[in-house]
Design a protein around this nucleic acid. Structure first.
Length: 128
DNA sequence: ACGCTGACTATTA
DNA sequence: CTAATAGCCAGCG
């Protein structure tokens, strides 16, 4: 419990990235919490991690996400504009959009439609 | 240990 | 609307 708990429990970093790279592990957990049919933004996730001023770290963490298990729904993570910025990092640049459409999310021109309505804020959903 | 990089964001022009 | 610039922080060589 403790709603306003300190979320900066960055465990100790393991030597040379072998297991959860600390910060990365936190990103994966948050992303996994994203319910199907919803999307989140890097900034929002970064805020939960405590590094809201640096959403770059989140995106970078997702780079490893594709080798992390369980699988991380990185396709549900888009930028502040609802743009599929990370689509280019998938197996195929169209895979991200296809996945989102399967979730019931409409994507137009690499942009999530009704993004504000589908936006899932981890700060509120997980920050109880 | 320093410097570069990067799936971002906000601001300014 | 787009383009460019600055800030940001963790991982890797």
């Amino acid at each position: 419990m403790k709603p306003s708990s300190s979320n900066k429990n960055l465990h100790k970093i393991t030597p040379s990235g072998r297991r959860e790279e600390g910060f990365f592990h936190l990103v994966y957990e948050v992303v996994r919490q994203i319910p199907r049919g919803r999307v989140s933004s890097y900034g929002a996730i970064a805020a939960v991690l405590g590094t809201k001023l640096s959403a770059r770290m989140v995106g970078w963490a997702m780079n490893n996400a594709h080798l992390v298990k369980p699988k991380v729904p990185a396709h549900r993570v888009v930028n502040r504009n609802g743009l599929l910025t990370g689509k280019h990092h998938f197996s195929h640049p169209t895979e991200m959009q296809e996945l989102l459409e399967k979730e019931g999310i409409m994507v137009k021109d690499d942009k999530v439609i009704h993004f504000a309505d589908l936006f899932w804020d981890p700060l509120k959903e997980t920050g109880l």
